[in-house]
Design a protein around this nucleic acid. Structure first.
Lengths: 347, 347
DNA sequence: CGTTAGCACTCGCCCCCTCCAAGTGCTATC
DNA sequence: GATAGCACTTGGAGGGGGCGAGTGCTAACG
């Protein structure tokens, strides 16, 4: 076994055939099967020799002595690198996608439909995320007095996302006071990131010691109640978990997996751990079990969506290692472009 | 077999014991097991006689001749009617619930956490729904010009729910025009239901033929673009599907079930089909397979939340027939009260 | 007359065994 | 280097046999 990474053209061809056969059949691939399938008419014996080499090189493994071979993570990695960038979107996928995304009116709806479509075109779950944190630029705030001591705060960001929040104040404020405060914030801070607005506002409140200034008092009251604390983003959409039932044999692991996928924050972390803006477009992560043990035998195919240089969203398919990579990669790539476009339109 | 619905106290006791044993063990209950368990010390033979009667009356059935008996839907129905209203919430549940719901700031968050808690206290999935349709009373609208021909509309209803929507106009409007329009709507229609506002606005636009009236023109523009079309409610929360993996043996049916639960509209329909405001509080629906075939062996335990006489929300547990009814019913009932309170506070 | 003990009978399940198909590694041959 | 042949390995399918749990029926008992 010389250089384990280097393999010749014949080895490559056979490896590719093994991976593809295993993906479609799900059963260990034997030399006879492969010989029958391969048009070059190599005999089983020859193939066996090659297979033995590939086992040595770490691309294949045997469940047990007398069974066929199955691809290792390394083989999938190699396979994906081979095929990447080769496919074009099929017409039926194209239709499916445009049908599902037609008439999308807001970001959340886009995310929901996107995750749904992703689960449809792949055999895994679709994930779509938008970052709507306090790094977004402020467009407008608005306060409405609902009842004594109770105020509804609406924060609109440049990207068109709306955060609403009902707050309880320690001291009541009139609607006029609220309007004055909102006007002040809008006039002074439009275009700042929400985070910056918060800290600067905190600083000003601290500095201005004029206790009897009505405006400052209102602002202090609102600040204390967390008027600008944009609420936890509900912008993680996960769809298609039903697909996993057929893909994960082990009952207990299936349960764990579903549980994990229900924890939206964990899913969001997973994506942001593996996707970043420097990558060209779609990234295929094989060996997910390092981050999430119950995701053994699953891969992530994802792409970021950016505004300028910042990642403002991401989408992905989490599916079985045995999946149609070409198909899925192409679809993810295409939808990622749509996502990019949508986000950049809204700025 | 005289009156199949009527059974004596001994039969009742034995039936209850069978149901409870089956719920906890999951295996057909035999006469010997029951005799050992029953403190009254009835012999297996006696119990067998009673069991035979219960089979005739439709409460029990045998998987096969030499197996024990399992309860029918009728038996569960009877059992639930027997125990209803008997339990009080355990301290640990009480803690679990208040911990999870503490610090809830808005309706969506409440729904999300509620569905989560419901899935935790039961062995099924938790569902929480709020109706945020156009029947809600208008509190305030606000329009913000984002770009030429592009306007963000925010509609706040009395119940504290915010609808946001990005619209494209045919003809551009200035922010001043938008403010004037918003002021007009707020001044004239606060407190109306969104539906009524829409139709009345349509009427006024139609009537006022003063083409050169700037305000009317703005309103017409906004109306055409659907400014008051509150977007599809994203207020159906379903959590805890991982619980089902252990409860549904049949692989294919599990897949169907998960798929159904992902279709939020279907879940919403299911709840509204079985829950209505006239019922006292919690309702237990046995025999769900009539509405949803893949829900064979599942029950729904749900309750409506109302504002005045109208149902504005609902919550439920969808779990296996073999569940701790008393426990779950109590929890659902308790959380439903909290939900009711929350909704009525916000009016 | 309701309750109980005894008994023969029925089944599903588990375990074990065998057989078989698929595949392998090795060696000799082309 | 490629191929054919061959002995060997191994998991899985298929086929009883034994076992335990449970039943229905009948006869006896308080």
């Amino acid at each position: 076994m010389p250089n384990p990474g280097q393999i010749g053209p014949r080895e490559r061809e056979i490896l590719t055939a093994i991976v593809e056969t295993y993906i479609s059949s799900g059963e260990p691939v034997g030399s006879r099967t492969l010989s029958r399938l391969n048009k070059d008419g190599l005999s089983p014996a020859t193939i066996r020799n090659v297979m033995a080499d590939l086992v040595d090189a770490g691309f294949l493994e045997q469940p047990h002595t007398s069974a066929g071979r199955i691809p290792t993570a390394q083989a999938y990695r190699y396979y994906v690198d081979q095929i990447s960038g080769k496919a074009i979107l099929s017409a039926s996928d194209q239709n499916l996608i445009s049908e599902n995304l037609a008439g999308t009116v807001d970001l959340q709806q886009f995310l929901e439909r996107t995750s749904h479509v992703l689960s449809l075109v792949s055999s895994g779950v679709g994930v779509a995320i938008a970052r709507t944190g306090p790094q977004n630029a402020l467009e407008h705030v608005y306060f409405s007095r609902q009842a004594p001591n109770k105020v509804l705060a609406v924060v609109v960001t440049k990207s068109g996302v709306v955060h609403d929040r009902i707050m309880r104040l320690e001291n009541d404020l009139s609607q006029t006071d609220l309007d004055t405060a909102a006007n002040y914030i809008n006039a002074n801070f439009r275009g700042w990131t929400v985070d910056n607005v918060k800290s600067e506002l905190g600083r000003r409140i601290e500095h201005e010691r004029t206790e009897y200034d009505r405006l400052m008092q209102s602002l202090r009251e609102l600040y204390k109640s967390g008027a600008l604390t944009t609420n936890a983003p509900r912008n993680v959409f996960v769809e298609g978990v039903a697909n996993l039932v057929a893909k994960e044999e082990d009952r207990e692991r299936l349960r764990e997996l579903l549980k994990t996928l229900e924890e939206k924050e964990r899913v969001a972390e997973l994506l942001s751990a593996y996707l970043d803006t420097r990558q060209e477009s779609v990234r295929v992560v094989i060996g997910l079990e390092e981050a999430v043990p119950e995701m053994r035998n699953f891969v992530l195919i994802g792409a970021p969506a950016r505004v300028g240089d910042e990642m403002q969203g991401s989408l992905a398919v989490i599916g079985p290692t045995r999946m149609d990579y070409q198909h899925t990669i192409t679809a993810v790539s295409y939808i990622a472009q749509l996502f990019d476009k949508l986000l950049n339109e809204n700025v």
